[in-house]
Design a protein around this nucleic acid. Sequence first.
DNA 1: ACCTTCTGGTTGTACGGTCGAACCATGTCC
DNA 2: GGACATGGTTCGACCGTACAACCAGAAGGT
Lengths: 147, 147
Amino acid sequence: MSRDQRADDPAALQEALGSFVRAFGLHQPETTPCGRPISVSEAHALSELEQEGELRQVELTRRLRLQKSTVSRLVGQLSSRGWVERAPAPDDGRGVVLRLTPAGQRAARNLAEARRERFSRLLGSIPAHERAGVLHALDVMVEALDE
Amino acid sequence: MSRDQRADDPAALQEALGSFVRAFGLHQPETTPCGRPISVSEAHALSELEQEGELRQVELTRRLRLQKSTVSRLVGQLSSRGWVERAPAPDDGRGVVLRLTPAGQRAARNLAEARRERFSRLLGSIPAHERAGVLHALDVMVEALDE
DNA sequence: ACCTTCTGGTTGTACGGTCGAACCATGTCC
DNA sequence: GGACATGGTTCGACCGTACAACCAGAAGGT
């Protein structure tokens, strides 16, 4: 099948993506694909917080694309694990600022390490000269999905 | 961070993939990304059955990467919607052979159509000069996963 | 033949992530 | 200052999934 024909057959893309999602275990969101006893959403939250240092809860909601109620509970779980601190936002009396505790930073690093191993294997299966293109393509798709 | 550094960092891949999964709404498995009142797993099951015509239940379990109990219930739901028929396997007294009913075939076609539209819109949001690259990147990833 | 083990399916139970709605407090705008 | 919008929390419900127990049929060895 030629390249142009494939571009006109979006179902093939869905097929491939569906297989990918299942192969990665993403259909079971309560365990991370890396085998850690932590949910996918929690892992993403940890990752965002580690990267940003501080994050407004509403911003986390936006990035995770969840309802605010869900994020509230999610943060509550992370907090009761001792991984996240909530502080009142200095510039907005309604807001909450989230930050990782030292224990949370350790957890995030451990998680990142497990993730790194898992994805190293996947990345290793991608020819080196294709890697940048794959990453760029995923960025492009996310951007497209936001419109 | 330069492009090459990023390309060799598995965390970047995870980042990109995580964003994509969330942007696509896959973190909410009880509604299909196409906005249909049908779960992602049901959609996949329908798709597999449409493609294969007939499928042993155990084979569906394998393809969907679910537990057999989950698939049993899943099939029960599709059956009570009148979309799937169960018949005893001719060569194995334990087995169950699944097949789409006419209504199920219609549902599968409708679903495929909705999916097509969704992906067409997605493709439409991707700058034309990026499309070939994105399609190619997806191919590469699927290939990498099959190893 | 018989016993054991494996395999495909079903049912019961529990868990957990997500949403929507109701509600409160605070910010914003006319 | 009143109306509306925004950030968070809590409550209730839904649903997909796993695990375990169980049953029935197949497979293989003695």
